[in-house]
Amino acid sequence: MLEKILSSCKLSSVSKIIEHAPIQFNRRLLYTTPVHYKKQAGRYRVTHRGDFPLTYEMANPPHQIAHRKSWNSWNTSNIVGGVRPAETAVEDVFIRKFMSGTWHNLFVSEIIIKRQYNIIRIAGIIQRTVNPRKLYFLIGYTEELLSFWLQCPIKLELQTVAERKDVIYKYI
């Protein structure tokens, strides 16, 4: 591979030298290009009109976790000596996907997953756009199905707001 590149660059003499030298893949190279700290994750672009709504969670970029905002998953898996970190992470992703699909367009906050002993408590803020009867059904449905899949008790602890505007922190 290296030879091909070198020959294409018409550096045959160099390639001959390198031909006999063992190729070391673990060598360390000096990278002189200036670093471009273009961090984009968890940040929102400012709009011209300044009318893009942000919740408190969205308004604070990830480096503010543990300073201005806290984590959305609470468990002991990732502390030193914690057990089954990978399983916990995958289960959390599954719970989030299930919740956002089942409670479609109802959650106006992030889904907070708190684990205590073998209990999983799912918290969040929903808006009151559906019938309370439907909400009761969804709560039972979610708790039943998730506890069947994850084999542990699930509790849903929801708070309702009248509309999405109630959780908007600022507009950008």
Partner: peptide, 19 residues
């Protein structure tokens, strides 16, 4: 919560308090 030059967000609709 933290708000620049204003009071912190109240308890209603505050996800930080739930976390």
């Amino acid at each position: 919560g933290y708000v620049e030059k204003d009071a912190s967000p109240g308890k209603f609709g505050n996800a930080e308090l739930m976390k």
